[in-house]
């Protein structure tokens, strides 16, 4: 017994080192996966309020660009105004009735914390359960896709953005509807990778890549980016480099999308896939 204590005493530094490293690694492995940000929710309540103060200040610095982006978005939205279009004939109106059954509900939110330089980047938004935010809702920015809601506290929510190596979304080429999946390699915050496109597909620089509506609650046709280069990988599939349309570095306002039909769809799925 005395010898054991003696050994413990002699090597206490090394033993403490190993113990603390093991604790760190366990934390690392357990908490850095998709869907497990719940652990961070408590810390988020504190850091969220501090970050929102900081971001209030930072907003002033980027006011000009934010205004520009908003004005641009306004212009696009105005194009969709009803008054911009001619009157419908009666047959069309009855067909259009189904449109009034709302499919997606949009809600705006402010980015209070955001990183682009890590492998596992996260974004914090200033809306939480209080405002009806739930995990798995889609988040888009003025220029296109941003990410998925990952963890929610009362007033803040955590987004798993495209710029996180754990993120994955199904996508397709707009011009020929070929399906693939988009991931981020962790290398450059301006580019992501589109995989699983068969090699015979003709891909040109500048082709648009959009979402399919199969992942989470992303609506169909949300812009992801444009093709910048493609090369053959693993025999039959192309690995396509996509320039991300969203400028993550200057992201300040986003929309959170709720899929109103989601419950019905999942219910149907579980019933039929039994």
């Amino acid at each position: 017994m005395r010898n054991l204590l003696k050994i413990l005493y002699t090597y206490h530094f090394l033993l403490m080192f190993i113990a603390l490293e093991v604790i760190s690694i366990i934390m690392l492995v357990q908490n850095n996966r998709y869907h497990s940000a719940s652990y961070a929710v408590k810390a988020k309540a504190v850091s969220g309020s501090i970050y929102s103060t900081v971001s209030d200040f930072k907003e002033y610095l980027s006011l000009k660009e934010a205004n520009k982006a908003l004005a641009h978005e306004n212009a696009i939205l105005r194009n969709y105004l009803k008054s911009n279009y001619g009157t419908f004939d009666t047959t069309k109106i009855s067909v259009n009735d189904s449109i009034y059954k709302q499919h997606y509900r949009f809600q705006d939110a402010k980015v209070v914390n955001n990183t682009v330089n890590k492998q596992y980047n996260y974004i914090t938004l200033n809306k939480g359960t209080k405002h009806g935010i739930k995990p798995d809702m889609a988040v888009i920015g003025p220029q296109g896709i941003v990410g998925l809601i990952n963890g929610v506290s009362e007033n803040f929510s955590n987004v798993l953005p495209l710029l996180n190596v754990d993120f994955r979304v199904s996508a397709r080429l707009k011009k020929n509807n070929y399906l693939g999946s988009v991931t981020w390699e962790g290398k450059d915050f301006e580019y992501c990778t589109l995989k699983d496109i068969p090699q015979h597909v003709q891909v040109n620089k500048g082709d648009t890549v959009i979402t399919t509506g199969y992942t989470g609650s992303f609506p169909e046709g949300i812009m992801i980016g444009t093709v910048s280069s493609s090369k053959l990988k693993d025999g039959n599939f192309l690995s396509i480099e996509v320039k991300i349309s969203t400028v993550f570095k200057t992201l300040s306002y986003v929309s959170v999308i709720e899929d109103l039909t989601k419950e019905e769809v999942t219910k149907l799925k579980t019933e039929t896939e039994k």
């Binding site: 603390l20 490293e21 690694i25 366990i26 690392l28 850095n32 890590k118």
Partner: peptide
């Protein structure tokens, strides 16, 4: 070593990087 761990842990818990800075 305990102070080092505490330092890393504090940074970790506020920047969503569980364990990285601690290690």
């Amino acid at each position: 070593i305990i102070l080092s761990f505490l330092l890393g842990f504090t940074i970790d818990s506020f920047s969503n990087t569980w364990g990285m800075h601690s290690a």
